[in-house]
Structures are given as C-alpha cells and as structure tokens.
C-alpha cells in the first residue's frame, strides 16, 4: 500500500474530508434555512457558526446514555454504528476528486442503491426496537415511505447509466466530461426530468420536508428517533449528515458531470465540491419553502405520479439513444 493511496483513504477524498464535509453541509443547510426564514442561524460557535455541528456532536457524545426498559439494546447499539458507517462506505464510490473514486467497479451504482435501501431498513429497525409508540409509528411511516420512493429512485438512476453505457459511477461521471455536456442537459427534456425525479426521491430518502412524516416533530415527538440519547443520537445525526452528502454528491456525479475541467485537472475537486454544495442548497431551499405532506399523500405522490413518470423517462431515454443520428 503506497503513501498516496493511504492519504487518499484517510485524508483527502477519504474519512477526514468526508466527515468534515458532512458537518459543513449541515451548517450550510441550517444557514440556508435560516436565510429563507429571515433569521441568522448558527452564528456564535466558531467563525459564523461553522463549528456548530461539531459542538452538537461532541455534546451528544458526552451526554448520559439511556436505553428504555423493554427496548432491544443490541439493535439500538448496532443501528447507529451502521447508520454512520454505511453512507461513509457508499461515499467511497463517489469520484470526489475529479475522475476516479477510491473504490470503483462495474456495478457500484447498484451497490450504492443497495446501501440506501439498507439505511431505510435500519431506520425501521431502530424505531421498532425502541419500545415506544411514537417510535413505532415513525418506523411504520418510514417503511411505507421506503416502499414508495425506492422504485422511482432506482429507475431514474438508471437513465444516466444507460447513456454512459456503464453502471459504475466513476465511468458515468467521466463519460459526461468526454461527451462535453452534463447528463442534465443531455437528451432534453428527459435529462432534466430524470434529475427532478431523482431530487424528489432524495428528499424522501433523507426524510426531509416535504417527506418528513416519519419524524414529524409537531405530531409524533421525534418519530423513530424519540428514544435515542447521547452517543446513539450523535452517531445517527452524523449518519444523516453523511447521507445528505451522499445524495448531494450522487446528484452531482450522475447529472452534473462537467465539460469544463478536462484541461484543468487541479480544478476538478473544487468544481465537484461546488456542485455538491449547489445540490445541498437546492434541497435546503425546498425545506424552507414547502410544508409537510401526510404519509398517505406521500404515498399518493410516489405511486400515482413518480413511478409512471420514472418508467416513462427511462423508456424515452432508451428510445432517444436508438435514434439514427445518435
């Protein structure tokens, strides 16, 4: 194992960078939401509040650890660890530094989609093992929501793969640079529609407004997270920040592969990070602009509109690729 690989694994696109970037995106999310609501947001902890997520994390680590009577201690211990480590694993498949991810193989897009499904299962297990009605209710809603958004998410993530002719995220990203335009602009209007479907499914995957019925704090306390304290909550919050980073960087790598940087290789990591931030700000804006849907409305949105639309966009992309001049 040579030094460059070790640095890549531990520092730049690896652990240190990913965790700091996840904390940074949480700060960006809270700041954007505060700006939409005409507030300041975190301001006093570190320069412009940048250290706020770090302070929250350390505080939660230092708090008392409680497991309610009747709850399954094993699940409540394993689930937070897995919920922090699974998105971190998935992030290693993303080409953070330009062209090539740390790990990539033909089919890693499917591996990332599989990790997203297992995260939803972990949420269900955590809520169910908490021995609390509110947590169980949140877990049920989370499972119902998973049944609805996973299908259009997988279908629409196949569209860029079809165009690139590969199921590897790094190859999809590189092929957009070779083609000279991002997939979002490829095959208009289907690229843009596929991006929109992916964005909406990401919001449901991350349980963000408008699809945050599983943790509706005005209604069912804190949903499936109700009984979590101390370091369990700290790890779950870190895992959610990492998932946020994962969805934003999936969006950036599948749809916004850039035609600008081939000549300027040193700019590639910076360009990618800016794209990830743009996607995160887009999701934060939606959080500030819309209200929460009830769980039955969420299901209706996905089953009656999103799934047929995703199938239609997939077929249209395939037909577009069969056109004689392509």
């Amino acid at each position: 194992m040579d030094l460059a690989y070790l640095v890549a694994l531990l520092i730049f696109p690896g652990y240190a960078f990913l965790i700091l970037m996840a904390f940074f995106l949480e700060w960006l999310d809270r700041k954007t939401l505060a700006k939409v609501q005409d507030r300041y947001g975190p301001l006093r902890v570190g320069p412009v509040g940048l250290l706020q997520p770090v302070a929250d994390f350390i505080k939660l680590l230092s708090k008392e650890d409680m497991v309610p009577r009747g709850a399954n201690r094993g699940v409540l211990t394993a689930a937070p660890i897995l919920m922090a480590s699974l998105p971190l694993t998935a992030l290693f498949f993303i080409p953070m530094n330009g062209r090539e991810a740390i790990i990539s193989f033909e089919g890693d897009l499917i591996a990332v989609l599989f990790i997203l499904v297992s995260l939803a299962f972990l949420i269900f297990l955590t809520g169910w093992a908490s021995a609390n009605v509110f947590a169980a209710e949140g877990a049920m809603r989370s499972a119902l929501q998973m049944l609805s958004y996973e299908i259009p998410l997988a279908l629409t993530a196949i569209c860029p793969a079809l165009v690139a002719g590969s199921l590897s995220i790094s190859t999809i990203y590189a092929s957009q640079a070779e083609a000279g335009l991002p997939f979002l602009a490829f095959a208009p209007p289907f690229g843009a529609m596929s991006f929109a479907i992916f964005l909406i499914c990401s919001l449901a995957e991350l349980e963000r407004v408008p699809f945050d019925a599983p943790e509706a704090e005005t209604e069912i306390v804190a949903g499936w997270m109700t009984e979590l304290t101390g370091r369990r909550l700290a790890l779950i919050r870190l895992g959610r920040d990492l998932s946020f980073l994962l969805m934003a960087s999936l969006m950036a790598s599948l749809y916004l592969g850039d035609p600008i940087t081939p000549g300027l290789a040193w700019l590639a990591p910076l360009a990618f990070i800016l794209k990830v931030m743009a996607c995160a700000i887009l999701m934060s804006f939606i959080r500030g602009l819309v209200a929460r849907l009830r769980i039955d409305q969420t299901l209706r949105v996905f089953w009656t509109y999103m799934i047929p639309l995703a199938v239609g966009v997939l077929l249209a992309t395939k037909l577009f690729l069969m056109l004689p001049w392509y």
Partner: peptide, 9 residues
C-alpha cells in the same frame, strides 16, 4: 426570526 436563539446554537 426577530430574536432567533439558534444564533447561540
């Protein structure tokens, strides 16, 4: 918005 104690975390 007017007082916003999220400033202090």
């Amino acid at each position: 918005p007017r007082f916003d104690i999220e400033r202090f975390g």
